[in-house]
Structure formats: C-alpha cells, structure tokens
C-alpha cells in the first residue's frame, strides 16, 4: 500500500517532471528542413544543453535536493546529467509522434557525425526502455533515483544523498507492484536499466573524446 506521504512525494516528482520540458522553439528546430552534418551536430549540442537545463530545473524540485551541500548538488548533477538525458530521450522515442517525426529525429542523430559504434548501443538502449512501457510515475521516479545516486565522483556526504534516494526507491517499488501485478520482476528490470545506462554513459564519454580529437 502506498502511504499518503508517498503519494504526495510521487505527485511532486511527476509534476516537476511534466513541468520542465525542452522549449518548443528548440524542439521544433529538430524537425525543420535539411541540415548538413555540421549543422546537425550543432543542433544536437543545443538540444543537449537545453536538456541539461531542464534536468537541473527538475532536480531543484526534488524535495530536499536544495538542502544538500552546494558542491554535492553539482557533483550529483555532473555525474548523472548524461544518464538522465538518455532516459528522457528514450521517452521521446517511446511516444507516438505525428508524421514520422521519430524517423526524422533518428535520421538527424544518425547523420550528425556520431560513430556507428556509439549509435547502435544508444538506440538499443532506447528500444529496451520503450519495451518496458513505463508509466509517467515510473519515468519520473526513475529519473530522480538516477540523479540521486550517492556514489558519484566528488560527492562528500553520501548519507545525505542516500536519505533522499531511499524513499524514492521505496515508492517506485510499490508503484511497480501496483501497476505491473503480473510481472514481479518489473522493479528489478527497471533497476537493471540503470546499469545499462552506466555502460552507455561510458561509451558516451569515449565518443566525445574521439569527436574532440577529430
């Protein structure tokens, strides 16, 4: 059973998740005209910057986050922004968009000069997230849990972060049981995706290094 406090916590997280979205004008650019490889790259950089800003705004709304040590706040965001971004992007691909917009977006990513070695695991990750058919509550809570991971580099007060993350894990576990009664392993599968995310982020760091060298 989900307690009143847990319901309230979920509501705050879901509302924050819904409230903070990429600005329409940035999102629209992705679907306009033809772009060269270089323009695609610049556009994706702009999207990524915008996504990080959205993630920070969402994180500021997580109860207790702003009471953490300021440098720990930065360490958590720095350690998780890329993972949170991949989670959010996967959700974009899981939505049914009009007029084959998903295809246009995929093409744009594929033609941005990013190597195939990275593109394949990225789209595989997106597919594995889409296959989970996560509810909005699950998406929002999983994103918050990713951000509030205590063992990121340079985090000093692990305990304070754990204290914020644990209630989220508890409520997510309950939400999973309620929403997927036929799948007792669902919660474990969601957490498994976080491990997959870490691997993807590792590839991402390598990809950026090779991009810079080019």
């Amino acid at each position: 059973e989900i307690t009143k406090e847990q319901k309230a916590l979920t509501k705050v997280i879901v509302e924050a998740y819904n409230r903070h979205q990429i600005p329409q004008d940035v999102a629209k650019k992705l679907l306009q005209d033809q772009y060269s490889v270089e323009e695609n790259f610049l556009l994706l950089t702009e999207m990524a910057t915008s996504q990080v800003q959205v993630i920070v705004e969402f994180t500021k709304s997580i109860p207790g986050f702003l009471s953490l040590d300021h440098e720990d706040q930065i360490a958590l965001l720095k350690g998780s922004a890329v993972e949170a971004m991949f989670l959010r992007s996967a959700q974009v691909f899981s939505k049914k968009m009009p007029n084959g917009h998903n295809g246009i977006l995929e093409e744009r990513i594929r033609k941005s000069g990013i190597s195939e070695e990275f593109i394949t695991p990225m789209f595989n990750f997106y597919k594995s997230i889409i296959g989970l058919h996560m509810s909005l509550e699950e998406q929002a809570l999983l994103t918050a849990i990713t951000i509030l991971t205590p063992d990121r580099p340079y985090v000093k007060d692990h305990q304070a972060v754990e204290k914020l993350q644990e209630p989220m894990l508890d409520v997510l576990r309950k939400v999973c049981v309620l929403q997927h009664p036929q799948e007792p392993q669902y919660f474990a599968r969601l957490l498994g995706r976080l491990t997959e995310l870490r691997t993807l982020t590792h590839y991402h760091a390598e990809m950026l290094t090779s991009w810079r060298m080019n």
Binding site: T45, Q53, V56, A81, L208
Partner: peptide, 21 residues
Amino acid sequence: PASNLGLEDIIRKALMGNLEE
C-alpha cells in the same frame, strides 16, 4: 574530464537560475 564539454558551467548557471548568461 574531456567528456564534459562545459557541463559543469551549464549546471552551475542553471542551479543559480541564470540561464540567459
């Protein structure tokens, strides 16, 4: 680290609410 492409700057500014800077 090489992978960060100004990530920390974006985060610091967004945390302070100075997105336009």
